[in-house]
Nucleic acid binder design. Structure first.
Length: 313
RNA sequence: CGCGGGGUGGAGCAGCCUGGUAGCUCGUUGGGCUCAUAACCCAAAGGUCAGAGGUUCAAAUCCUCUCCCCGCAA
């Protein structure tokens, strides 16, 4: 069978690799254009482009999807099926209708929950204890297509978005190949999503990392976990921005206003929250790298009683 | 040429503006105190101040270049 793959970031890599290892033929790859990245403004190719180049598969990096030119290029590959993992663009009807077997999408959540661009992150932020992969037949909506296969994995208390994503990506590759296998065998019955149960997981914004100290210690920890490794959860100590990468809840009641540094020792910083006390374990300040709180305190004088929160201007 | 910060004993930082004997909080090692300790007290070891060149009687400090790291922005 002739398959075209569409995907862009690291998350899509295991999907493409699984397809390459399968019995079907990958006749073309579509990924997003190289984008300026990093400190200079060097153009960085998306990970999927590198795989395509290495494998000698023809690839396209269209600036715009909805052009006659792109549609023609796609049609020239004569795909029976298009597989999509984290491509980052909405496909419209002319593309969806192109392959006879339709377009299969790999999504990193247990649909219909967490439709959108950042399903893993929001699942962790909301304190979910499990998530998974859903494959579906794409339609024109945002992750609204009929579901094909679904498999669950646990989210552990120590997990961050950064540790869950690779596991899901691997699972996504396996499930994608299995989905295609069953589709070819005609053994697949798509199930419509129950839209009344749907929730949205929009792309993370910088501001989503702001820590609300009036929340519970556990909810703050979940946010820190979900925002790691990008874009990071942060608060302000006076003018200085503190990125907090790791924290634990301390089993004692908060005796001070939320955000107050209740205990500062040589080894630890404890902060009052709206419900419980939070101990910061790993911190990063501007121009510095992330480090254990003990090291941070060795070189910085921090007084207890200070209130963390919005930058005082 | 996107903006900015930084590289100082093993770790994190100060000192640089206003050149002139290398400092702080830890860690390490030895000793002491203690029922005991990650606590406390005393002592010691450990640094070509990222690298190269320049200015100077004298450079961690001023000037130039190189390498590496980080934040913002994308």
């Amino acid at each position: 069978m002739r398959i075209v793959f569409m995907g862009t970031p690291e998350f899509a890599v295991p999907s493409l690799e699984a397809l390459l290892a399968s019995e079907d033929q990958i006749v073309g790859v579509v990924t997003q254009p190289d984008r300026p990245k990093g400190r200079g403004h060097e153009l960085a190719p998306p990970p999927i482009k590198l795989i395509a180049q290495r494998s000698g598969i023809p690839f396209l990096q269209p600036l715009k999807i909805r052009t006659a030119e792109f549609l023609e290029s796609l049609a020239a590959w004569k795909p029976d099926l298009i597989a999509v993992t984290a491509f980052g663009r909405i496909l419209h009807a002319p593309i969806l209708n192109l392959p006879s077997m339709g377009c299969v999408n790999v999504h990193g959540s247990l649909l219909p929950k967490y439709r959108g661009a950042a399903p893993v992150q929001w699942a962790v932020i909301n304190g979910e204890t499990e998530t998974g992969i859903t494959t579906m037949l794409m339609d024109e909506g945002m992750d609204t297509g009929a579901m094909l296969l679904q498999e669950r994995i646990p989210i552990l208390p120590e997990d961050t978005a950064g540790t869950v994503v690779p596991r899901l990506a691997e699972l996504g590759g396996r499930l994608l190949v299995e989905t295609i296998r069953q589709l070819k065998a005609g053994a697949m019955t798509p199930r419509a999503q129950d839209s009344t149960q749907a929730t949205m997981a929009p792309l993370l914004k910088k501001e989503d990392g702001v820590i609300d100290w009036t929340g519970s210690a556990q909810s703050i920890i979940n946010r820190i976990r979900g925002m790691s490794p990008w874009p990071g959860a942060y608060t302000f100590h006076g003018q200085e921005r503190w990125n907090i990468w790791k924290a634990v809840a301390v089993p004692e009641p908060a005796q001070a206003q939320p955000g107050t540094l209740v205990t500062v020792t040589k080894q630890s910083i404890r902060v009052a929250t709206g419900n419980g006390v939070l101990e910061i374990l790993e911190i990063q300040t501007a121009n510095s790298k992330r480090m254990p709180v003990g090291q941070f305190l060795a070189g910085h004088r921090i007084d207890s009683g200070v209130r963390l929160g919005t930058a005082t201007v």
